[in-house]
Simulated scan of single mutants.
Amino acid sequence: MRELIVTNEPVLISYAEALLKDQRIEAMVFDRNMSLMEGSIGAFPRRLVVSDDEWAEAAQILRDAGLGEWVVGNARK
């Protein structure tokens, strides 16, 4: 698994998940339930991850949707 987006923005995570799901790319959100531990203050970012094999395609989908600045590494080709 490889990080695709790291953010405290739940709407961004949801939007990115929807974009990837539409393209049949399975993504998982790590640390989604961390708010239970932190008291919902948003101190810990959530991580959207995909398989290593699908990372490049997923990153391109997000860049095409205008979310390139959020992609970890922002590896443009």
Rank of each mutant, 00 (worst) to 15 (best):
N33Y: 15
V29Y: 10
A18R: 12
E38V: 11
L19V: 04
E17Y: 02
P45M: 05
S40P: 01
A27L: 04
F30Q: 13
R46V: 07
M34K: 03
A16H: 07
A43P: 07
S35M: 05
E26G: 02
G39C: 10
I41A: 11
L20G: 01
L20Q: 00
R46K: 14
G42Q: 11
L20H: 02
S14L: 03
G42T: 13
R32W: 13
D22Q: 09
M37V: 14
M34P: 04
I25D: 07
Y15L: 10
R24Y: 13
I25A: 05
L36T: 10
R24E: 12
Q23K: 14
G39V: 10
G39K: 10
G42K: 11
F30A: 12
L20K: 00
G42P: 03
M37I: 12
S14K: 00
R46P: 00
G42A: 11
D22M: 10
G42L: 13
D31H: 15
M28T: 09
K21F: 11
G39W: 13
M37K: 12
P45G: 04
M34D: 10
Q23L: 06
L19K: 08
M37W: 11
D22I: 05
S40I: 06
S35K: 08
E38D: 10
Y15P: 03
E38P: 04
F30W: 14
E38C: 10
Y15V: 05
E38T: 15
D22H: 07
D22F: 04
G39E: 10
